[in-house]
Design a protein around this nucleic acid. Structure first.
Lengths: 194, 194
DNA sequence: GAACTCACTCATCACTTGTTGAGTCAACTG
DNA sequence: CAGTTGACTCAACAAGTGATGAGTGAGTTC
């Protein structure tokens, strides 16, 4: 175990350890039920130190749910990201954010902003009639899949291997990429008027 | 206003008023953040009376999230129920259940049981390869739509009229009803708007 | 090596929560 | 009409919460 560290580096390491503990705790119990004391215990630290580092429980939460990468805006990469990578396991930030998005207003706002942007990107990339609506359906559908699998742990989604889920989900989700009524494989831009 | 009531009837009415207040409060803030005091205030009643009626906060919550009808098991009726009726507004029980399903273990279990059964019904009704998986995707997708619209209030899903959402969502969701590899027209209903 | 800095702990506060038991007054019973 | 029941309120408790501020001792500086 590498012990020799400068004082500032040790403080930074402690801050990170607290943040990791907070993400895990928020991710398991949500904002309301998570306590500073348990976060501190998880980080092997005094509760008051958590406050000295992050100011308040709300401030710590705001940092804990900050998502790292904005995610790809191209459709194919987006679906690969979601269906292949994120299907197996969620990052702690995402887990904490999703867990509290229905009860903590700050998390709700953050999630709404994140998904709104994702819908806008997808909608622009797809085009066609009802692009916003179709994009929103894709995004909300993936959200539902994530919740049902990782949080509710539905039988059908926890017993099946990841590959099977991705195999069945991809063509079905991809259906929404094309405008309604059209089931041909065309590229991104397409304008159809019934 | 009809005031003259027997003592038992008045007590039953008070119990119902408390239950309604509880559903509303749980539906807005979730189990953890909701307080007996606010529920009592909402029902114009002393906090201790809530306990005398329902025993504990947890017991009250357990009753508050009990869903009334089990819902139709036939596919067409199921989709009509979800896309036409429930799209506009959710019953208080459902709102309370969904709000807390990610943070309150009791709500998580209840929701999992409910959706598991719904998946089983749909899967049996559809048949074909990967029936369980396809059914789970339909169900989780509708869950995601509900959350994105009624709880996160995504722009694209709150600005569009209910009819538009149903029109775009129905054929897309219905795609999963048929086994993979088939991209024929939707088998159940027509998909052209009036 | 003495003086100082500061990451960290300890003890404690103010507050809110769910929950309890005694008391109150109108409605029912004989 | 007197006595009892019971629906309801009042006051209070124990437990747990986020947050505060004074200390303490190892690391840093000169």
């Amino acid at each position: 175990m590498g012990e020799p560290k400068s004082r500032a580096a040790k403080r930074a390491a402690t801050a990170q350890r607290i943040l990791d503990a907070a993400r895990a705790e928020f991710g398991e119990h949500g904002f309301e039920a998570a306590t500073i004391r348990r976060i501190a215990q998880r980080a092997n630290v005094d509760p008051s130190l958590v406050m000295q580092h992050y100011g308040s429980k709300a401030a710590l939460f705001a940092i804990a749910i900050q998502l790292g990468e904005p995610g790809p805006s191209e459709i194919g990469a987006h679906l690969h990201e979601v269906l292949d990578v994120r299907l197996a396991a969620l990052p702690p930030q995402t887990k904490a954010l999703v867990r509290s998005m229905l009860t903590a207003p700050e998390a709700t706002d953050s999630m709404r902003a994140f998904l709104n942007e994702r819908v806008a990107n997808l909608s622009r990339a797809m085009g066609g009639d009802d692009a916003d609506l179709r994009a929103a359906l894709i995004v909300s559908s993936i959200l539902g899949l994530t919740i049902a699998r990782h949080f509710l742990k539905l039988d059908a989604l926890t017993s099946a291997p990841d590959a099977d889920i991705a195999r069945v989900a991809r063509p079905w989700v991809t259906t929404g990429v094309e405008p309604a009524g059209q089931h041909s494989r065309t590229s991104t831009k397409r304008q159809v008027r019934p």
